[in-house]
Computed example of a mutant assay.
Amino acid sequence: MADINIAQAHHLAPEAARAAAQQVADKLAEQFDLECVWDGDVLRFERSGVSGSLSLLPEEARLHIELGFLFGAFASQIEAKVADKMRRVFTGA
């Protein structure tokens, strides 16, 4: 099992941060066929072999992904792609 933890700073209003988080979640859901559900300011996602959450804080978004055995082999590639997506949606870069 592999864990991915990404913290991305942002200066977005709460509504904009939520929209950015939803973009990240939509991409993850598309790639990994995940079920995503908001629980307050935390977006939780899950499927067999992948689970995690994206937590919105006033100036930071924190993503935690737990990868099962099969996906664990691709952890570094997944982390790089997700970190890039988070950077782009939360900073506009």
Results as ranks from 00 to 15, higher is better:
A29N: 07
V89C: 11
G52N: 12
L63H: 15
M86K: 11
A7C: 13
A25T: 06
F32D: 01
C36K: 07
A21M: 09
S51P: 02
Q77T: 11
E46V: 06
F45A: 15
D41F: 10
G40Q: 13
M86Q: 02
A2N: 15
L70G: 03
F90A: 02
D33V: 04
A7L: 13
Q23V: 03
L56T: 02
K85M: 11
E59K: 00
R47T: 13
L12H: 14
N5G: 09
D84V: 03
E59Y: 00
F71Q: 09
A25K: 03
K85F: 03
D39Y: 10
F74K: 02
A17I: 07
V37Y: 07
D41C: 09
M1A: 13
A20Q: 13
F90C: 05
R87A: 04
L57Y: 08
L54H: 12
Q31N: 08
D41E: 15
T91K: 02
D39P: 01
W38C: 00
G49E: 10
Q23E: 14
A80L: 04
A29F: 07
E66V: 06
R18L: 05
K81I: 02
E79K: 15
H10D: 00
G52C: 14
E30Q: 10
D84L: 02
Q77N: 12
C36I: 08
S48P: 03
T91D: 07
F90P: 02
D3S: 05
H64T: 14
A21Y: 05
V89Y: 10
P58V: 01
Q77L: 07
A21N: 04
G52K: 03
K85T: 14
I78D: 11
V37G: 03
K27I: 01
E35L: 04
P58W: 00
G40I: 06
A75N: 09
P58A: 05
L28Y: 07
A20M: 10
A20G: 13
D39G: 08
V89L: 05
L54G: 07
E60W: 01
F69R: 08
V24L: 03
L63Y: 15
P14C: 11
G72V: 13
L63V: 14
A21I: 09
A20L: 09
K27H: 09
A29D: 12
R44F: 01
V50I: 15
V89D: 07
K27Y: 12
E66W: 08
S55K: 11
L57K: 14
D26R: 10
E59R: 00
L34V: 05
K85R: 05
V37R: 13
H64P: 04
V42P: 00
F71L: 11
E59C: 00
V50Q: 13
V82L: 12
G92E: 05
L70E: 01
S76A: 09
L57D: 05
R18G: 01
A16V: 06
L54W: 12
A80K: 14
S55P: 03
D33M: 03
D39R: 09
D84S: 07
E46C: 06
E66F: 08
T91Y: 06
A13Y: 00
E30M: 05
E35K: 09
A80E: 06
A9H: 00
